[in-house]
Nucleic acid binder design. Structure first.
Lengths: 171, 171
DNA sequence: ATCCTTGCAAAACGTTTGCACCTCA
DNA sequence: TGAGGTGCAAACGTTTTGCAAGGAT
């Protein structure tokens, strides 16, 4: 809870934006609160105060990469009464509902991406920085996916391009 | 320390095998102990009892993916007197020396691959299974790497193909 | 009224650290 | 002998859990 990941690329992707999702809904009224409620219900989650508010905090700022304690701090800053346990619950429930995507990264903390569509990441491990690989990075990067072994099927392909500051030694 | 990752693909890759490395050395004598000692010295690590024995345990069984506690259990089973702290030290020192490679995976534990060359992994998260993507998987998979952002350069590209058992629902 | 959700504190987990002791060269 | 490796236990940060109280339908 001391130092936070800097996000230096917030590639917008309105297709998976909370507000966009809400707007595309059949019975959208235009009222953010009402729509969010309906939307939460649709993904099978009761629209409780915390989920509504955390959803708002998460999805109202474009695509981002958050950790549990980042979201916790934001929630506190926004005067949302919420416990850390609920933060974790909510992040996992949203992930399960397909609203978030967990990022493959080494290291203690789990990152959640508010853009759950198939795309990949740059990672600067030493600096705790995660950023999207921009535009077309997915198609560009993964050309041919290998067959899954017997009895398994591919769920998704994650690509992490690790970066270091230019000129640094390989240590 | 309770349940362990099953490895179901130990793709052999003698180029990065400890024994092979030792054999390729200039002054290899054929005596595993002597050669390992020399080899450790070459990568800048004092050939202590623990490093020698852990190196042997790690690299004498083909390529594998181990966690700290797996290695700890193996060491205990092999009657190697070692502490968990030393296991962590050794794993990191070996990784830094290029003998091991850490695998990008979500979840608490860190996996170390005894094959440090550029290659990628299948991952079955629910079952704690890691396996190599076989033969040519690297060239096949990553076709075109994006440019690194200003001020950074690419250190490496990790691809993780997540699997689930066939026929399972997306949950 | 019922089930689900939340908050809190405590525990679990993997990992790291501090320091005294020991070992290798 | 001196630099550095090791062991132990305690600290750490993140995440999970158990249970009582609160909220949604």
């Amino acid at each position: 809870m001391q130092h936070h990941t800097k996000i230096f690329s917030d590639v917008p992707n309105s297709a998976v934006d909370w507000r966009a999702k809400v707007d595309f809904r059949e019975h959208a009224t235009g009222c953010p609160w009402h729509d969010c409620k309906t939307f939460l219900r649709d993904v099978g989650l009761r629209p409780t105060r915390q989920r509504l508010l955390l959803g708002w905090v998460l999805f109202s700022k474009g695509n981002r990469h958050v950790t549990a304690d980042m979201l916790y701090d934001e929630a506190l800053a926004a005067r949302i009464p919420v416990s850390l346990a609920t933060i974790y619950n909510t992040l996992h429930q949203f992930t399960q509902a397909g609203l978030l995507r967990e990022i493959s990264a080494t290291g203690g903390r789990a990152y959640f991406d508010t853009n759950p569509s198939e795309h990949h990441h740059f990672l600067v491990e030493d600096e705790d920085v995660v950023m999207d690989i921009p535009e077309g990075g997915h198609e560009l990067l993964v050309d041919k996916v290998p067959d899954a072994p017997e009895g398994y099927e591919i769920e998704r392909v994650d690509v992490v391009v690790r970066l270091r500051r230019s000129g640094e030694q390989i240590r």
